[in-house]
Simulated scan of single mutants.
Amino acid sequence: MPATRVKEAPLTVAAIQMEPRIGEVEANLARSVALIEEAAGHGAKLVVLPELCNTGYVFESRAEARALAESIPDGRSTQLWIETARRLGLHIVAGITEREGELLYNSAVILGPDGLIGRYRKVHLWGDEALHFAPGNLGFPVFDLPFGRIGCHICYDCWFPESFRLAALQGAEIVCVPTNWVPIPGQDPNREAMANIIAMGAAHCNSLFVVCADRVGTERGQPFIGQSLVVGHTGWPVAGPASRDSEEVLVATINLADARRKRNWNDFNQVMRDRRRDVYDEMLGSGAKPGWY
């Protein structure tokens, strides 16, 4: 995509923490729209929803996942979110169970008032997701929106530093993360979630804003941990973490230009400039094209 300069203007973003119910697509969509409307009431222009928020997450079989999956963009979930984006004048990133031909993907749609902007397919599958979904085959695309350039990861993708670095190298200022975080073995209950630490570290190491929208509740015996957050380009949270067990609309106002304009750490060091491209490949062997960074 062509590189564009970031507008020097505040942007209000929202991470929507919700509790989808497995198989209850209509109810999940209705709840997502109500929460998007709440975010819009707080001035949000970019709203991020959790992973697989239209269907729920813990499928009993691939047949169940396939029965709930939808094509993009003509499926009912994408069409309803597009209508909502148009009505409210905002952009939405939402996790969805995608069907393309015989294949299923754990995907996210990037939508605006004019319709589908793009999609992302989860690259790194977690646990028995591999029984239902094909690994993502679109790489780590970056999308031009009116307010800047965004990347998208889903949950386990965040555990791979290459994911954030490739987004940053392609010119992203913000990465949106629909996620379904589960408890991590050894987690100290008195410390921030490991997922929060990873998001903060990635934001700091790449000078990116990161918006993580997690779910809550327990589904077919699997608990989810909540604690959605919005991380600034320095790595420190600017909103959240949210609660561990309740739905919440987490809102923050940021300036995407800071991701580039304030990237220098001191008189000598700047995280993108200091890369040793004589030691490792410019784009980590991905074949992606560098953006304006």
Rank of each mutant, 00 (worst) to 15 (best):
M1P: 11
R5N: 13
K7C: 07
A9K: 12
A14Q: 06
I16Y: 00
M18A: 05
P20V: 01
P20M: 05
R21V: 14
R21F: 09
G23W: 06
E24F: 06
V25E: 12
A30H: 04
V33A: 10
A34K: 09
E37Q: 15
E37P: 03
G41N: 04
H42A: 13
A44Q: 01
L46F: 12
V47L: 09
L49G: 03
P50E: 00
P50D: 04
C53R: 01
G56P: 02
Y57A: 04
V58P: 03
F59C: 03
S61Y: 08
E64Q: 15
E64L: 05
A65D: 06
A67R: 11
A69N: 04
S71G: 11
I72D: 02
D74P: 02
G75A: 06
Q79N: 07
I82L: 02
L88C: 04
L90T: 01
R99A: 15
G101A: 09
G112I: 08
G112F: 13
G112M: 11
L116E: 12
G118S: 12
Y120L: 05
H124A: 14
W126F: 15
H132I: 13
P135F: 12
P135H: 10
L138C: 02
F140N: 05
G148M: 10
G151L: 13
I154N: 06
C158W: 07
C158N: 15
F160Q: 13
P161R: 13
P161A: 13
E162A: 14
A168F: 00
T179C: 11
W181L: 05
P183R: 04
D188K: 08
R191E: 12
M194Q: 12
A202Q: 11
H204A: 14
S207H: 10
L208H: 06
F209K: 06
V210Y: 01
V211L: 02
V211P: 06
C212R: 03
R220E: 07
Q222M: 14
L229N: 03
H233Y: 14
H233I: 02
W236G: 03
A239K: 03
G240L: 02
G240Y: 03
R244F: 10
S246W: 05
A252L: 02
A252V: 05
I254T: 01
A257L: 13
D258I: 01
D258Y: 09
R261K: 10
V271R: 10
V271Q: 09
M272F: 13
V279I: 15
V279Q: 14
E282G: 01
M283I: 06
G285R: 10
G287F: 12
A288G: 04
G291S: 10
W292T: 12
